[in-house]
């Protein structure tokens, strides 16, 4: 299958590959997977005191579209609030990367990874508040 130029660009030069310190109270981790294709995606976000995402890193095992989807969202996430991040829709990702219908699930994976990471940071913040 032919990949779009944007997918190829992210696939060949993925942005923000790596990890953040998962024990940092300001870091949220989202891990999701797709059984059908065996894709695994880990997304980590670092949030400052104003609720703005300062840094985002990802690690994805999967096809080019899954890697491109996660690479793209790490770029989008920086500078956004966690609520703005939570509102990102898979259709926006699919549209930006011109994903064909059979690869839409890769963008679903990326959206769900963001939601999982935001949920994780919120749970951490809540736990910290209750402990204080």
């Amino acid at each position: 299958m032919a990949y779009s130029d944007k997918v190829l660009d992210h696939y060949e030069n993925p942005r923000n590959v790596g990890t953040l310190d998962k024990n940092d109270p300001n870091v949220g981790t989202g891990m999701v997977g797709a059984p059908a294709c065996g894709d695994v995606m880990k997304l980590m976000i670092k949030v400052n005191d104003n609720g703005i995402i300062e840094d985002a890193k990802f690690k994805t095992y999967g096809c080019g579209s899954a890697i491109a989807s996660s690479s793209l969202v790490t770029e989008w996430l920086k500078g956004r609030t966690i609520d703005e991040a939570y509102a990102i829709k898979n259709s926006e990702i699919a549209e930006e990367l011109a994903l064909p219908p059979v690869k839409i699930h890769c963008s679903v994976l990326a959206e769900d990874a963001i939601k999982a990471a935001v949920a994780d940071i919120k749970a951490k913040q809540l736990a910290a508040k209750e402990a204080a």
Binding site: H105, V108, D112
Partner: peptide, 22 residues
């Protein structure tokens, strides 16, 4: 449907293991 594309939630430790194997 076991492999519904809208269901991407899996236990974290399981996915960590998958990532290690990969």
């Amino acid at each position: 449907s076991a492999i519904s594309e809208t269901n991407t939630a899996m236990p974290t430790d399981f996915l960590m293991q998958q990532m290690e194997w990969r």
